[in-house]
């Protein structure tokens, strides 16, 4: 079962699925391994990047528990939950694209990639709507307008952290959707899977990881401190 799913392991790949070996590599296996490892190393840095923000949340939680709880109850937890569900769906469609690419099913791959991009865009639209709601409820302390919790200055720190964390995640997702659309544009060519199947694999890791980070953001920033 696992070996059959692992088409990328260079054994038993169907006709017309493969990669073009760049000159610095000895063979395709080495190139796949390097690309995969490179993406994991990058994801390591992404995890540590967000860990700094989670650390700030934990410290605020320890130093100002009441203010953090009060601020967290003003976050739009249902929009956050819906967005989590959207990203979980997009992870499934991304896996669909990877599976299809391993079997050389180009049309399914393209459909799944587009579906993933659409779900990512839906996430961003919901996120924008959430920010707009925050604006209407005077929960944007850094803007030049009254702040709903002005009586408790420490709540401001947590709200600021919420905006920074979600905005940084949204930046990652925006970049992700842009790369995804660019890759889909290239992948529409018939011979794409002959040459660059591992792009889909490597990109899939990134997408799943952005999903993973959001699950952590939702739980740690929206729900736990309430």
């Amino acid at each position: 079962m696992t070996t059959a799913r692992r088409m990328s392991a260079s054994v038993a790949a169907p006709e017309g699925v493969g990669i073009e070996v760049a000159e610095q590599f000895a063979d395709a296996t080495q190139q796949r391994h390097a690309a995969q490892l490179g993406m994991w190393a990058w994801l390591l840095t992404e995890l540590l990047l967000f860990a700094g923000l989670f650390l700030c949340a934990a410290v605020l939680h320890v130093t100002h528990p009441a203010a953090v709880a009060r601020a967290a109850r003003h976050l739009k937890v249902w929009i956050g939950a819906a967005n989590t569900a959207v990203l979980i769906c997009s992870s499934l469609t991304m896996t669909g694209a990877i599976t299809a690419s391993r079997h050389g099913w180009r049309r399914w791959m393209l459909r799944c990639l587009l579906a993933t991009a659409a779900l990512g865009t839906l996430f961003l639209l919901l996120k924008g709507f959430e920010y707009y709601q925050d604006y209407l409820e005077h929960m944007t302390p850094f803007l030049d307008r009254p702040y709903a919790l002005a009586g408790e200055p420490a709540t401001r720190l947590y709200i600021d952290l919420y905006f920074l964390t979600t905005a940084l995640h949204a930046l990652h997702l925006t970049t992700g959707v842009a790369i995804l659309l660019g890759m889909t544009w290239i992948a529409r060519k018939p011979r794409f899977l002959h040459r660059h199947q591992n792009w889909i694999e490597v990109y899939g890791l990134y997408w799943h990881f952005i999903d993973l980070i959001w699950i952590m953001v939702f739980t740690l920033i929206y729900v736990v401190p309430r």
């Binding site: 840095t45 540590l48 990047l49 700030c56």
Partner: peptide
């Protein structure tokens, strides 16, 4: 890999 992202986020803050 393990340390640089932390300074990145600290300086972004």
């Amino acid at each position: 890999l393990l340390a640089t992202p932390v300074i990145t986020i600290a300086l972004i803050l």
